[in-house]
Simulated scan of single mutants.
Amino acid sequence: MPVSRIALGMREEATHPDALRAALAEFISTVIFVFAGQGSGMAFDKLTNGGASSPSGLVAASIAHAFALFVAVSVGANISGGHVNPAVTFGAFIGGNITLLRGILYWIAQLLGSVVACLLLKFVTGMPTSAFALSSDVSVWNAFVLEIVMTFGLVYTVYATAIDPKKGDLGIIAPLAIGLIVGANILVGGAFDGASMNPAVSFGPALVSWDWTNHWVYWAGPLIGGGLAGLVYELFFINRSHEQLPTTTDY
């Protein structure tokens, strides 16, 4: 069972050079992703005088996030695994692929990376960063379930292309698939709740703009979806009966 593989980690791990390098890689990858993703929406809004929420703005956001995540995962893959998302880290933890201590380091790095990216965007553009928000006809429970479903698909894709030991040498396929599923989900959920799928991506704009309206949805939904994906994939698709128990994500 995946739950039996959950590990807290050793105290020394919090200060181990490899863990700190991995956290730094997560920080940089998250800055890259949020700066490009959030910045694309701000740029489109400026060029179209408020058209970021239009159909063309949604397509632009989808493409920008897909490309940016492809790059962010690629540059971090060999160092930290390229999570760039607390929900991915949580899913990996639930599946026993990363320790709690290293996961906490990742979360801190991801949240800081998002905040720094939003502060940089606010400084260089002179524009405010907008927090994720629900459309007027969407309830918090609609958005909550939507975030669960979208994040489940994202983390399931991460497991299938990056964590599964049977994956073989997929090269750029893993980061490409991860970027594409996020881009596709934005086309689905962007008009309803912004399609976060990533608590860090929601946290940075919310903190910088100090707008916490319905912010819990963008934490609870992705974490539940990511955790469920980790459980389902580990339970039904990965056979570790003859493998040594891992302590960190290796992808």
Rank of each mutant, 00 (worst) to 15 (best):
G126T: 03
E26F: 06
P86S: 10
I98K: 02
P55T: 11
N239Y: 11
I178E: 10
F70G: 13
L24R: 01
W219D: 05
G113V: 02
L20F: 01
N198K: 10
D18R: 07
R240V: 10
S74C: 09
S130L: 09
S209P: 02
S29F: 03
I108W: 07
L111I: 14
Y156L: 15
M197L: 15
N198A: 06
V140G: 14
S130K: 13
T129G: 05
S114N: 06
P17R: 03
T248R: 11
I6S: 01
R11S: 14
F27D: 01
L100P: 05
L121S: 02
N85V: 06
N239D: 15
G225A: 00
V201E: 01
V182Y: 05
E13V: 03
D18G: 03
I148P: 02
M10A: 15
N85R: 11
L235G: 12
S196F: 01
D18K: 07
I28R: 04
K46M: 15
V149K: 02
Q244C: 07
N97Q: 14
L119M: 15
P86F: 10
C118E: 08
V217K: 00
G39A: 05
V84E: 02
A72S: 14
P175R: 11
G81N: 09
D250I: 09
I63W: 04
L58S: 11
Q110N: 11
I186L: 09
H83A: 13
E13T: 06
K46A: 15
G153H: 10
A220I: 09
A200Y: 07
G82R: 13
F152R: 04
L235F: 12
L24C: 13
L69T: 04
N85Q: 11
H242F: 15
S241K: 13
H16K: 14
N85G: 08
V3S: 14
S40H: 00
F192M: 15
S130T: 15
F93Y: 15
